[in-house]
Amino acid sequence: MLCRTANELYWMARHIERAENTARLLDVTYRMSLLPYQVVEPGLAWAEPWSVPLVTNGLATAYYERYPVLAAENVLRFMSLDPANPSSICSCLRSARESARSVRGAITSEMYEDLNSAWLEVRQYDFDRVQAQGVSEFLDWVKMRSHLFRGVTFGTMLRDEAYHFIRLGTHLERSDNTARILDVKYHTLLPSAADVGGAVDYYQWGALLRSVSGFESYRKIYSDVITPFRVAELLILREDMPRSLHSSMTFIFDTLKLLSDRNTREVERQAGELHSRLRFGRMEQIIETGLHEYLMNFLERIGALSVAINRGFLVPSY
């Protein structure tokens, strides 16, 4: 298939997934900001919960160019509907719809109709309406639209190369985002290290689990209290947890096995290596390395894999 078509499909999927994950990140931040016993030490402004969505996405500079102070309302506005922020939910949906329009022939008409109506709907929102309706309701709507699109894709599309590139985009974006969401806890945890195991800690981990739809799964698997060790295990190493790093890497590796040929074996190898680290990794070792360091290392590798995919399939240099 044409590289441009593959590229548009890949980015269409990434943008939808990014919109969903931005909603999840805002959701966990929102939940954490509602918790009592916030510990914010002077001089550690970056540890304030509302700085987290900006810091983890590298958007702090862009934010401060538009808003003078860090405030919940501003961050929500910036991350949800601000067209000037290319990573806002609204911008992501617009980009996804534009991609879909330019390669309409490669997707089913149901997929295009679904994405088109999501875009038409998000255009109707303004921030006042989001606030009046409740932030959580808006974030839930975003998640539902993403579920819906994934469902339409799964239910209508031929399992051809186009489908594989969509899957690749979805899971690359998701693994990147899960790592970032998990790292959120690192930022908020640090100032109150003394509180580990206390009530605040419990609620914070609980909020994080909920944001990735993992709370019920956690209960089911561990039938026990929430411990950081297990939350990390669930979101990094469990293959049966749909948003875990391991699960996403399995999809990515399997998909690349289908897509690669003799010119792109190296891309497949890189994905396989990363997959093995998750498949055979142990939690004890991750803790020993340090969770934050481990996640940063993962993000670096997944970034390198994206670059390799780009070069191998989407934007070849010949």
């Binding site: 044409l2 590289c3 441009r4 190369e161 897509l259 010119n263």
Partner: peptide
Amino acid sequence: AQQMGVELVEGQDLFVQDEHVYMRTTHG
């Protein structure tokens, strides 16, 4: 393009080498 089952290409999808025209595809 869809009805004929052929690619819909833009200029950026094509290149010329040794006076032959090629499409940039995911398989080269």
